Simulated assay, not measured.
Amino acid sequence: MFSTDAMEYGRFLPDMPAPGDFSGAYPCLCVFEKASRRTVPVSDTLPGLIYLLSGSGYVEYLESRHTYLPDSLLVVPDMSLFVLDPLEDTEYLCFVLSQGGELIDQISQRAGAVLALEGDNGIDQKMGKLCFDLQSGQIASPYLLSARMYEILMGALAACENKKGGGYPPLVRQAISIIREEYAFLAGVEELAQMLEVTKPHLIRTFTKATGMSPGKYLVQVKMENACLMLQNRDYSIDMIASMVGYSGANYFCRVFRQHTGESPGEYRARHFAPSASREKEQKLKELEGIYHV
Results as ranks from 00 to 15, higher is better:
L87M: 13
L87S: 14
E88V: 02
E88L: 06
D89E: 15
D89Y: 06
D89M: 02
D89A: 15
E91P: 00
E91L: 10
L93V: 03
L93C: 10
C94G: 07
F95Y: 14
F95L: 15
V96W: 01
L97N: 09
S98Y: 02
S98P: 05
S98F: 06
S98R: 06
Q99L: 12
G100W: 00
G101V: 05
G101R: 05
E102P: 01
L103P: 01
L103C: 05
L103H: 05
L103I: 06
I104K: 08
I104E: 07
D105P: 04
D105W: 08
I107R: 04
S108H: 04
S108L: 05
Q109K: 14
R110L: 15
R110P: 11
G112K: 04
G112A: 02
G112D: 12
A113S: 15
V114A: 15
L115I: 03
L115M: 12
L115W: 02
A116E: 07
A116N: 10
A116M: 09
L117D: 00
L117S: 01
L117W: 00
L117V: 00
E118V: 06
E118F: 07
G119K: 05
G119H: 12
G119R: 09
D120H: 10
N121F: 07
N121E: 06
G122F: 08
G122L: 12
I123V: 12
I123K: 01
D124W: 01
D124N: 04
D124V: 00
Q125E: 14
Q125N: 11
M127S: 07
M127N: 08
G128M: 02
G128Q: 01
K129M: 14
K129D: 13
